[in-house]
């Protein structure tokens, strides 16, 4: 899983640098987020601008991160979803679970 981590405004922003999140790389993403949370970085934004495809295992990896961050009084939000990726969250009603921001500016305004 190609990704980049940046600390911005006390948030850990994970930039996913893959076009697909599927069963081939979602396990790695899930483990990466869990490790981050274990290390105390519980406020996370996953930036999905490059992602044009996500499957059920990808949704599951992000949901796992969301639950684990919440369990430690943190938050995991999403930013910059492409329409078809967003529609997967809507279909599964996970758009009611995650905070989904149009861009990182909106994310920081709300996370602050």
């Amino acid at each position: 899983m190609k990704l980049k981590l940046e600390k911005i405004n006390d948030c850990s922003v994970i930039f996913i640098e893959e076009e697909r999140i599927d069963a081939h790389n979602s396990g790695e993403l899930k483990a990466y987020i869990l490790q981050l949370i274990e290390n105390g970085d519980v406020n996370i934004i996953v930036q999905l601008e490059n992602v044009r495809f996500i499957d059920s295992s990808g949704l599951g990896a992000l949901l796992s991160g969301h639950k684990n961050a919440a369990a430690k009084s943190g938050k995991l939000g999403l930013a910059c979803c492409k329409q078809q990726v967003l529609s997967m969250f809507e279909l599964t009603r996970l758009n009611r679970v995650f905070e989904i921001y149009t861009d990182l500016n909106e994310a920081f305004e709300n996370e602050a």
Binding site: D55, S56, S57, G60, A61, L63, T92, V97
Partner: peptide, 19 residues
């Protein structure tokens, strides 16, 4: 069917295929 009120990390694949 997935339980949308208490979403789980797995079990959505067949739901997508059926949908």
């Amino acid at each position: 069917l997935p339980n949308f009120e208490q979403p789980k990390e797995s079990g959505m694949g067949l739901y997508f295929i059926r949908t």
